[in-house]
């Protein structure tokens, strides 16, 4: 039963010398990492052409555990950094994995515009409802009335619905899962990896050590059980109906799945036009 010498199926995709990882007990980020690796295997993604970019925060550390080209960018800037890489070398398979604060508070503008452009990249957001790395402050997805270190009397702001934002901004694939749907999550990531357009997956992920602790949600397993109890799969429903209330109902599923020309494809077309125009004017 010792795992010491046995090679595990995901070992080739991981920087094994970086383990054990730095995440807390029961943190959903390890589950996302594991699902991502299985999806990369199942989608048969060439590791030499895979680039994973993350921002700052707990989720920002995920790229450092993957055995591929990976970049730990500045806070909120994973998407534009990844955009530069994808545009300059469209042969790369570019993935951004980061947290709700990084992607939607400080980096929110970049998310909107990358989705609008339909940049060919997969963005996975680990949504744990607070800033974990800095000790549990208010984030853009913190539920109304939830306790954080900066809302010590209860959050008076309304949270952002990430699925609705992504769909409105033009993402061609939009899904939400909780980490408890491990197999569905893997399948969804696989779908996102295979898409030639802007794909977005929100993963509701427990933060037992900080958010759970502050809001008296019990042990890691109790948080898991509550997530399972309130989650329902509603594939294909309009994003407007994809509500998220962590104590009442978390609607999961594939919500948007549509085709639209990718950004780097459009850039190639622009090159062709530019060259033709240049030939016409210079002879």
């Amino acid at each position: 039963m010792s795992g010491g010498q046995v090679k595990f199926p995901l070992d080739d995709l991981l920087r094994r010398d970086r383990f054990p990882h730095l995440w807390c007990q029961g943190c959903g980020l390890g589950i996302i990492l594991s699902a991502f690796c299985r999806a990369v295997q199942e989608a048969d993604i060439d590791l030499d052409h895979l680039v994973v970019v993350s921002g700052i925060g707990c989720a920002g550390r995920l790229s450092g555990y993957l055995n591929c080209d990976s970049f730990h960018a500045t806070h909120g800037r994973a998407i534009p950094l990844a955009s530069g890489a994808k545009i300059a070398n469209p042969d790369l398979k570019v993935v951004v994995i980061s947290g709700d604060g990084d992607l939607f508070a400080i980096g929110g503008n970049h998310f909107v515009h990358a989705a609008r452009r339909n940049l060919e990249m997969l963005v996975i957001c680990s949504n744990n409802f607070n800033y974990g790395m800095t000790g549990g402050q208010l984030g853009p997805t913190t539920p109304f009335q939830a306790l954080t270190k900066t809302t010590p009397f209860g959050n008076w702001e309304e949270p952002l619905n990430l699925v609705q934002l992504a769909s409105a901004a033009g993402a061609t694939y939009v899904a939400r899962w909780t980490v408890t749907y491990t197999q569905r999550l893997t399948n969804s990531i696989k779908k996102g990896l295979q898409r030639e357009g802007f794909a977005f997956i929100e993963v509701v992920s427990p933060c037992p050590a900080i958010y759970g602790e502050m809001n008296e949600q019990g042990s890691a397993w109790q948080m898991w059980e509550e997530l399972e109890a309130v989650s329902r799969i509603r594939d294909g429903i309009p994003p407007a109906e994809a509500s998220l209330d962590i104590h009442e109902r978390i609607i999961c599923g594939d919500f948007i799945d549509r085709e639209r020309a990718g950004y780097t494809l459009r850039l190639r077309q622009n090159r062709d036009v530019a060259r033709q125009k240049a030939l016409a004017s210079y002879g």
């Binding site: 960018a73 950094l81 530069g84 890489a85 503008n109 515009h113 240049a278």
Partner: peptide, 25 residues
Amino acid sequence: PQVGGDFVQFEDEIASMAAVVGASY
């Protein structure tokens, strides 16, 4: 685009500089 390169007008200067770093890599 005429010489086989890419020009992108980003949403702000923060994104522009981040993209330059990504492209450089």
